[in-house]
């Protein structure tokens, strides 16, 4: 079985004034295709750093990340931007929808970045919004949606270009229990439906149990295998 994600001796160090901080220390793991991964750990353990490096949002100090057989270590900014657009989807704790776009337009955005025709993008965005149960709210601005609804739009956006991996950084962190369950259920069903892998950061053990693989991070290192 091919791995959708391989993390090899991934290290991230940065300077905080005069002090060198190791956010991630020699982390290695792999995730087969179709499998999901939950990353557990206390605050400051390096979970977000790992997700950012794996998603190509930040640069690594050493090591490598291989996604769908492609190493992102030596990709140029343009290459990694294009790769991220077509291969990955992101869901953030802070939701991060554009406040000047409607729900539909927010979902269209990754497709427009990819150069998809506007009409096609609109059609697909509406289908995705229907899947997350938000067709009636397609033309509403984020400020007109509840937190749960906004996060569902973010889920639809993350799925826009049929990514192979979805990176979710505590997507239910700001949501109540009901909306949290709703979002996780949607993520779970859509990922299985489309064969995509979900990598989620969470501090909730109950959510982590729903994932086929779990990594525990502490002080930038993996504590379990």
């Amino acid at each position: 079985m091919d791995n959708i994600l391989e993390v090899k001796k991934l290290t991230k160090k940065y300077k905080d004034g005069d002090i060198e901080v190791t956010a991630l220390d020699n982390v290695s793991f792999s995730l087969p295709e179709g499998f999901d991964l939950a990353i557990l750990g206390p605050s400051g353990s390096g979970k977000t750093t790992l997700l950012q490096l794996a998603g190509g949002l930040d640069t690594m100090t050493s090591g490598d990340v291989i996604i769908s057989g492609q190493s992102i270590k030596n990709m140029s900014d343009t290459e990694i931007s294009d790769f991220r657009n077509m291969t990955m989807g992101f869901i953030f704790q802070m939701i991060n929808l554009h406040d000047f776009f409607t729900a539909k337009e927010n979902v269209m955005l990754p497709m427009l970045v990819a150069g998809v025709n506007r009409l096609e993008a609109e059609e697909k965005a509406l289908k995705l919004l229907e899947k997350v149960g938000l067709s009636p709210r397609a033309n509403h601005l984020p400020k007109q949606l509840s937190g749960g609804e906004q996060q569902r739009v973010a889920v639809a956006r993350a799925l826009a270009n049929d990514p192979k991996i979805i990176f979710a950084d505590e997507p239910t962190g700001k949501l109540d229990k009901m909306n949290s369950k709703l979002v996780i259920d949607i993520l779970e069903s859509l990922s299985h439906e489309n064969g995509m892998s979900v990598i989620m950061i969470t501090h909730d053990e109950n959510i982590a149990k729903r994932f086929s693989r779990v990594i525990k991070l502490e002080n930038g290192s993996v504590k379990n295998k």
Partner: peptide
């Protein structure tokens, strides 16, 4: 800054 970050996260190039 946040808006730019979101665009970059979904894969918009620097040139765009």
């Amino acid at each position: 800054i946040r808006e730019i970050g979101i665009f970059r996260a979904i894969g918009m190039r620097k040139s765009s």
